[in-house]
Amino acid sequence: MESTSEFLNIKDVNTSFKIKGKYYDAISHINLEVHHDEILAIVGESGCGKSTLATTIMGLHDPAETKITGEIDFEGTNLLSLDEKGYNQFRGAKIGMIFQDPLSALNPLKRIEDQIQEVMDYHTNLTAEQKHDRVLELLKDVGIVNPKRTAHQFPHELSGGMRQRVIIAIAIACKPDLIIADEPTTALDVTIQAQILDVLRDIQKENHAGIILITHDLGVVAETADRVAVMYAGQIVELGSAEQIFNTPKHPYTRSLLRSMPQRDNENDDLYVIKGNVPSLQKMPHTGDRFAPRIPWVKSSSHETNPIMHEIESGHSVRCTCYKDFEFPDQGGQRA
């Protein structure tokens, strides 16, 4: 699904956290754009900066502990130049966020209705009655069977799946152009996952929103995403359409990730394991390919000293040149 209407343009964004008085990059030089009517998936293993990117777009970092540079152009406004008050005009109204853990993301002392209504209190001029109707409508939209009853309940009376639906209802209450879903299905069981993803897709069709879907579940990505950005150690290492990423993955990390996913044709083999860990913030190398230490069999001369993104076909780009020489050790004849 190609669309020209890009409305979110992330340009060279760096977010660094203060640890013991020094700043360390959590994400570096991120360039991304999001279009209407598309689902952009951001994948990568834990600690690679996916959630940091999401919270950076939402402006949820404590300015005293974080340093953010670059530009996030949202419909003509640079979000990073806004103050709290300015940001609040966008948060909830034009950007909605869905959080990872539905069990703790709702205020335990407030009724569902009040929590959904709150977002409308700040961004709409609806009357109390209109808001009430909208709450019921939203709850119905996200697939809650008895909206009237649920609206009156407290979070602890709902199941995890229902709470996640409520959180989605909050995120979409003001029909935002951008929805950021940070691992929306991680805490849920598989059947509920599928339902939640359906809800997200339906909502998107209705509102022509762009969705950033953050996940480490490649199955979810294959099912829903239009485009995919693969992140490793705070950088985007590969970016392309879902077909490009799944059918012709280039970057060693993408290929390793895909190989570590259980598939029908390798069900009798051991799953591939990427050796090592994502480096911690303090130990992040500043030059060279950050993935190099985890594929030690690749000649160091294949890596660029300062890896950049190379566009290899329309809409598909890869960081570093090492992908040209990359082969899995067991496929090159020797078993790792």
Partner: peptide
């Protein structure tokens, strides 16, 4: 997390304290 949710709704800091933090 629920305070983060409130922030993502665009609730001003003052109201976050009033409606979410203080009572809880």
């Amino acid at each position: 997390d629920y305070v983060r949710t409130a922030r993502s709704k665009g609730v001003p800091e003052k109201d976050i304290y009033r409606h979410h933090i203080f009572r809880n």
